[in-house]
Design a protein around this nucleic acid. Structure first.
Lengths: 265, 265
DNA sequence: GGGGTGTACTTGTCTGAACAAGTTGACTCC
DNA sequence: GGAGTCAACTTGTTCAGACAAGTACACCCC
């Protein structure tokens, strides 16, 4: 999932004083320079001291800026040698991975969604565990079909924790982004997420909704979202038609957000 | 992916002075405490000042330690509030994502591999681009079948850059880990990676090798590895039988502070 | 030329200090 | 009792200085 070009720093809910954070400013400028081709892939960046002098900042601040870019996979570093440019595009992580709508709009696709059902029922064992609620506690089970440019590409089965159930039930049937609505109207913001990605054959319901044959390959992303206090919001099972979506991760020996598991994890 | 127990810090190739890096020590201790249940999920960690006093370290060093854990998805943080524990297992990092053998052995599976073919041929357009070589430049194309506990689970099609081709050709037909061999015998170490994950139906060769029907769902992981100078080593297309492997990602909305701000400067 | 040496440069680690910004919980007041 | 206020606490950001460890490149010697 390649990122569009949305400045991360300006998303830092800091009211109007955008850009007041030095290391974000520096990181954005470097990112722009890299993506603009000023430092092509393989090139060496200026030294930290150079950058510090150029920006009238301390070396620590510069280090935080370049660490941001390193975490994005844009640059690499080795002790003693100057940093090198590894890639020219930036990928985003959290919001794009957590919100189908945000990702789709970011890459310029027309997204539409429809709730096919919203019912309250006791949680399954897995749902209870993922949402950290008692087994059998009430959850809101949602079935949703999502389209990209008119084509059905994803079936979403989500269990919402009871404390956000009313909010989700209040949403319009064709609401494009539940997480956006929760954040805007209810102050419920997803802050942490965990995602499990695997492949599986389409079941009969999947096949009917996506217009495929049973057994067709689907890419499945199961994920749990939690708010800033770590309280689980939703546990979701999203199934994409093969070929419609690719997940992308970059890592280095120093940092990696992604891991691999056997079978059902 | 649960961590085995391998101390990360001691992998830092620092000769015999294991544990000399303070922030790694602190991070390991905290990680052990979390995984050991001393701080259960949802609990609040001691404040940075507390930890600094307890370890006789500066706050900057403590911040680097907790940033490590935050990058692993183990803990979360918000300005003004104490850090909270998000999860109790640790996901492993780079080597597990890059090396099938290392990952499999880490989780206690028996892995076996076999080269089905190794031929030098001109690079395809995509290979040339991913490996950053001229279109048509020679690469070593490898087809490999990999088994987990005796069961065939993955078909690997890799293009190795010419500068490592001889090393790969020299390996035994049932070599379990090419990357391990490259690192041990040739000093070629993978440091950066980029991964694309999607689903697709099995082709006829895939189906035959994995013992499936054509069109069965496969989970595909394409990835490029580069050494520490950013020089590409290999571009690979790995296809897993559905159900055999799950990828796992954890993330947070916080602009990855993995950097450690530290006063240093 | 080839190869080893050494120095200047650059990143990694760590300390100590200060202020800003957000959270928490106790306290007060109606 | 409920709601608002406030103070203590905690994380976020930034600075300046110091040394360790690893790299790169010019230089020298054979």
């Amino acid at each position: 999932m390649i990122m569009s070009g949305i400045p991360v720093g300006s998303a830092r809910g800091r009211g109007s004083r955008v850009g007041s954070i030095r290391y974000v400013e520096i990181a954005e400028a470097l990112r722009a320079a890299i993506m603009g081709g000023e430092y092509p892939v393989g090139a060496r960046l200026p030294s930290e001291s150079d950058l510090a002098a150029r920006w009238a900042a301390s070396r620590g601040t510069v280090r935080q800026a370049v660490a941001t870019l390193a975490a994005e996979g844009l640059i690499g570093s080795r002790q003693g040698a100057r940093r090198i440019v590894l890639r020219q595009e930036r990928k985003h992580s959290f919001s794009e991975l957590n919100s189908f709508a945000q990702w789709a709009e970011g890459v310029g696709h027309e997204v539409s969604s429809r709730f096919l059902s919203r019912v309250r029922r006791p949680a399954t064992v897995e749902e209870a565990e993922r949402l950290a609620v008692a087994p059998g506690a009430e959850v809101l089970a949602v079935l949703r079909l999502r389209r990209l440019d008119g084509e059905p590409v994803m079936v979403e089965r989500t269990a919402y924790a009871q404390w956000v159930a009313a909010a989700v039930e209040a949403m319009a049937e064709d609401c494009r982004s539940v997480m956006d609505g929760l954040a805007r109207d209810w102050g419920v913001v997803a802050q942490y997420g965990e995602h499990l990605i695997d492949a599986l054959p389409a079941g009969s319901e999947d096949a009917r909704l996506l217009g495929l044959r049973r057994g067709s390959p689907l890419l499945r992303q199961r994920h749990v979202s939690a708010n800033r206090t770590g309280r689980p919001i939703e546990w979701s099972d999203d199934r994409y038609r093969a070929g419609s979506v690719t997940f992308s991760v970059s890592n280095s020996a120093v940092t990696t957000p992604l891991a691999r598991r056997t079978g059902e994890g």
